[in-house]
Amino acid sequence: MSARLDPAPGDWKRVAPRYVWVDLVGTIVGWVVITVAVSLPWWVSHQAWMLVFPAAAFVILVLLAAFTPRRVRSIGYRLRDDDLLFRRGLMFQRFVAVPYGRMQLVDINRGPLDRALGLAGLRLVTAAAASNVTVPGLPMADAEELRDRLVELAETRRAGL
């Protein structure tokens, strides 16, 4: 579709392509659990039409898994002079701009799969819970460098609450 949102055209830094595996495993595990959960009515009653629920969940699982590479490619961030831009989402697009001075802290989170692949996720926290910016799938060295750089930028542009 032509009317895709792009409020800030330019070079976006993308996350590591191998983050696809982390996202894929997460998606599949999550939706397999959901598929099993919604098949419970069928286990109990053995009515054939109740297989509709697990079937629907399975279709969603396959679709989500198929689009995972594109969804991961849609995640991007960009360091501008005074703020950090973040984007993600294919169907549901979201763009956020966080001025460096507003950052209260920067987290690095690593799950077991992240660690196996040498990846890390960076989370920015502002005074507003709604900001909710998490950059997943950064190579560990990049994540640490980015964190140090963000903290330094936040320090030089310190703003009030």
């Binding site: 009317a3 697009q93 956020v96 502002t126 507003a128 709604a130 900001s131």
Partner: peptide, 29 residues
């Protein structure tokens, strides 16, 4: 403006069909 924590713009499939979008100014809860 001095109290805005961050700014976001959203677009879901329905809004995209209509060439629309939503904005969200983040402040403290």
């Amino acid at each position: 403006a001095a109290r805005m924590q961050s700014v976001a713009v959203h677009q879901g499939p329905l809004l995209r069909r209509l060439r629309l979008a939503a904005i969200h100014v983040h402040t403290v809860a």
